[in-house]
């Protein structure tokens, strides 16, 4: 199965709900106040957020006022273009220019950091990179063991300390080991933390600083893992993690459920942080590059 098919399949629930709804709203009625309100509702139900939804609907209303949009087909086309342009150009995660290329994965508890790292390691190994995983989640029970299993599966190297030890120390050792062994990519797991806990955010800042000490310029990518089932709070997560360590990209997980992941639009709109990866299934191959045009097209086809 090709990339596009898999994405389409993963998003099928999203697509079904959303597109059918859009079609049904505009198939029998003109673009008027009532139908626009219904569209706004559909957008809000996708976690797009009340503000973004109002913006999209407003623009559609303006276009309709000019006489450009009349029936369901052109509404769909307008929405597609609008949503693609809101997301901007694709910015895939490419380990390039540095060796080792250091990726730091952060996020709140339970979003799927460790799983995403495992899948990412598998993907990079397939592309021919050597990968080292660093067990920086020293807090949660058995988090180290969980990552170790993923390291085995993806045949990546693995650096760990004991549970409860200082995550910064693990990170330093991991980067030092990767430099000594000539590894291409280091991926650092971190403990899940709520963005409102300032001591834990301080700890994360330290982890980032130590990366820089172990290797000048590291980390090269700071990936915020976001759960697609989360609502408007995901925007707060992005905001506060960004303030603390500076997020360079987002990995959106659990898109294979009925959750729409519409928060992507709000995050891009408010913070201009690109989504780089999406998780559309449980398998090791179900981590995909985020391509806005494909993402939206998969929604509409």
């Amino acid at each position: 199965m090709g990339f596009f098919d898999r994405l389409k399949e993963g998003l099928s629930k999203t697509r079904k709900g959303f597109v059918e709804k859009v079609e049904s709203i505009f198939s029998s009625r003109p673009v008027d106040e009532e139908s626009l309100e219904e569209l706004e509702e559909t957008l809000i139900l996708s976690d797009v957020g009340a503000k973004s939804a109002a913006e999209i609907v407003k623009r559609l209303g303006e276009q309709a006022g000019k006489g450009g949009i009349r029936e369901a087909g052109s509404v769909r086309e307008f929405l597609r273009q609008e949503m693609v342009s809101m997301l901007g150009a694709a910015q895939p995660l490419v380990p390039f220019g540095e060796r080792p290329f250091v990726i730091l994965a952060v996020g709140v508890n339970g979003v799927g950091k460790t799983t995403t790292i495992g899948k990412l390691a598998g993907r990079l190994r397939d592309q021919g990179h050597s990968v080292l995983l660093a067990a920086g989640d020293t807090f949660r029970a058995a988090a180290i063991e969980q990552l170790e299993i993923w390291a085995d599966r993806s045949k990546a190297q693995f650096v760990k300390h004991q549970s409860g030890s200082d995550p910064s120390a693990v990170v330093f050792d991991a980067i030092a080991a990767a430099r000594a062994r000539g590894i291409d990519v280091v991926i650092i797991d971190t403990a899940g933390r709520l963005h409102t806990k300032s001591p834990l955010m301080e700890e994360l800042k330290k982890v980032k600083r130590v990366c820089g000490k172990a290797m000048h310029g590291a980390p090269h990518e700071i990936l915020l893992v976001v759960d697609a089932t989360n609502g408007q709070n995901a925007l707060r997560q992005a905001e506060l993690f960004n303030e603390a360590v500076g997020i360079t990209g987002i990995a959106l997980t659990k898109l294979d459920g009925t959750a729409k992941g519409g928060i992507v639009f709000a995050i891009k709109r408010e913070l201009n942080i690109p989504v780089k990866l999406i998780g559309v299934g449980e398998g090791i191959d179900d981590l995909q590059d985020f391509v806005p045009a494909d993402f939206v097209r998969a929604l509409f086809e």
Binding site: T229, N230, G231, T258, A259, K260, I263
Partner: peptide, 12 residues
Amino acid sequence: ADAMTGQDAVNI
């Protein structure tokens, strides 16, 4: 259930 769950909470 995660307190941060969005609109999909009802379906789930």
